[in-house]
Amino acid sequence: MSKSQRVTAADEVAILRLMNECRELGDDAMAWQQRLISGLQKLTGGMVAAVGPTPPLRGELGVLQEWVGQQLGGGWPSESLRRKWEALAADPMAMQAHPAVSAFWAMPEPSLSLTRREIVPDHVWDRSPFVNDLLRADGMDEGLVSRADVPVIGGGYVLTVVRAKGEQAFSRRAGAVVAALLRELEPHLGRGLFLTSQPNLHGLSPRLRQVLGCLLDGDSEKEAALRCRLHPTTVHEYVKHLYRHFGVSSRAELLAYFLRRYPRR
């Protein structure tokens, strides 16, 4: 890779800053992924970006319908355009007509980061009815997609970004930057960065969070009651609520749950 195609020190700083901001919002799946989208747009100069989990790669296009249903997007020029493309994305037959998407999901490698030109050549792209009649007609064109296998979430995670019509194609450096961002994300997905399907701290009342903090500090229920100035019976009910919320049945399981997801706590 030539020097101009490498991730720069400034890129690395921007990626780490974005990661820190996402981790601060990690309990709220919607909030941290929206922040990730805006950061991805800024890092790459993209107009529209989408992020989200994907089912395990099965080497077939059937994964498309499951994948698009879990994506969170941002940067649409208008609400009507957003609704139009969400409807298109939900139609597996329509997405199979997208030359880059169909080629990308047919690739067997579980982890990839490729620009459109690395997926399909210009002559295929420029002659595609999907590209000309849909993408370019709506002011979009070049794309970049990166995916990684993340066993802890039972599948993978995908970053996609699209540039406005008339802008330059994504460079290999842009692909390297997005790949570096995804590598930083991987260890935290399903741990400090919660996904929508996982129970997390978001939605817990301040009192429940306070009692949870005591339990994670090693306090007994009686000690938690003293620290929180609550009746022991109330604390016991809070503990049962926390067990139900996180899908565990004991203090040991609760601690293990948080150690897996918050290893630096």
Rank of each mutant, 00 (worst) to 15 (best):
R6H: 11
T8K: 08
A9G: 06
E12F: 00
I15W: 08
D28C: 10
A29H: 04
W32G: 04
S38A: 12
S38M: 12
Q41F: 02
G45L: 09
V48T: 01
A50L: 13
V51M: 00
T54R: 15
P55G: 06
E60C: 07
E60L: 04
L64P: 04
E66G: 05
W67L: 13
V68F: 15
V68R: 14
G69H: 08
L72A: 07
G74Q: 05
S80L: 14
L81D: 13
R82C: 10
R82F: 10
E86G: 14
E86S: 14
A87G: 01
A89D: 09
A90L: 13
D91V: 02
M93P: 00
M95H: 03
F104L: 12
W105L: 09
A106Y: 01
E109A: 14
S113A: 15
L114E: 03
R117D: 13
E118P: 09
V120S: 06
P121W: 02
P121G: 10
P121C: 09
D126F: 01
D126W: 00
R127V: 07
R127H: 11
P129Q: 10
F130G: 03
N132F: 00
L134H: 13
D138H: 15
G139L: 06
G143K: 05
L144W: 07
L144N: 04
V150Q: 02
P151N: 02
I153E: 08
T160L: 13
T160F: 11
V161R: 00
A169Y: 00
F170L: 08
F170C: 07
R172Y: 05
A174R: 11
A180V: 00
L182P: 08
R183C: 05
E184Q: 15
E184P: 10
G192K: 12
G192M: 11
L193M: 01
S197L: 08
P199Q: 03
P199S: 09
S205L: 13
L208E: 13
R209N: 14
G213W: 01
C214T: 05
C214E: 09
L216H: 02
E221G: 07
E221A: 13
E221Y: 02
K222L: 15
R227H: 14
R229S: 15
H231L: 15
T233G: 09
K240Q: 14
K240R: 15
H245T: 13
G247K: 07
V248Q: 01
A252T: 05
A252I: 00
F258M: 06
F258G: 06
Y262V: 05
